[in-house]
Amino acid sequence: MPYTGWIILTASLVGLSCGLIGVFLILRRMAMMADAISHTVLLGIVIAFIITREVSGTPMLIGAVLAGLLTTFLVQWLHSLNIEQHASMGIVFTTLFAVGVILISTSVGNAHLDVQHALMGEITFIPWNTMSLPVIGDVPKATALLALAFVIVLSFIVAFYKEWKITSFDPALAASLGIPVVFLHYVFMSLVSITTVASFDSVGAIMVVAMLITPAASAYLWTDKLSIMLVLSSSFGVISAIAGYYTAVWLNTSISGSMAFATGLVFLVSFVFSPKHGLIAKYVKPAL
């Protein structure tokens, strides 16, 4: 596959996974948690690196999931101590992120891991760092990791679709029906972590947050059905990825930045034109 093809495929995978996960972040009113996790997984990556001395797929995923679970647990714990939910998130993620940054600058000292890279990502270099897979052949490592993350996210969402729906809509009912609400919350946060860390390497933390929140928030404006919201959100993610790439090439600017900007444009268009909640619909539709 040509260089451009790999970049677009990689970015599209980010858009797909983030789009799916983002829907539930929005519906569970946990958008802020995306920000928290996108910062704390850094700690997971650093620790995985310190132990294995390499930045590679599986240890990184495991490290990120552990960091994500730790974040979730600490936020819940602080909240149970009478600290407001968003304040708890703020405290936890800034602290864990700081620990990650300190570890990078003191004990890692490796060119592969710097803060700049973690925040902005480096999608341009992805196609050159390949691995060999059976049948498929040479594939960029980051792309393979993202494909794996996408498969995991998609299968969890499909397999537990009705559980995600009910625990997002009415956790009290879910609990009274015997559905393990807290356990599923941790599973969900693990999926957020997996998505985040897999996307991290290619697009960086800022882009991950944009991709997690904005396409889902846009999709929310277009539909009243959860399944359609999922399809729209992931499509918006892919569209933003592709449009962002070509914009970046055209203007010769940062790819991640353009993609994040594209998600913002999608939201703006949705906000103005959506038939149900959009600005124009509000003026055109007679009041009920």
Partner: peptide, 27 residues
């Protein structure tokens, strides 16, 4: 069976009436 206070859920959730009733059967 538990019927919470109406204000305890988000009525803007993307779902329809039939779907909400079906949730009662998830158990």
């Amino acid at each position: 069976g538990y019927v919470p206070q109406r204000g305890s859920v988000d009525w803007d959730f993307p779902t329809d009436a039939l779907d909400v009733v079906t949730m009662g059967l998830y158990g």
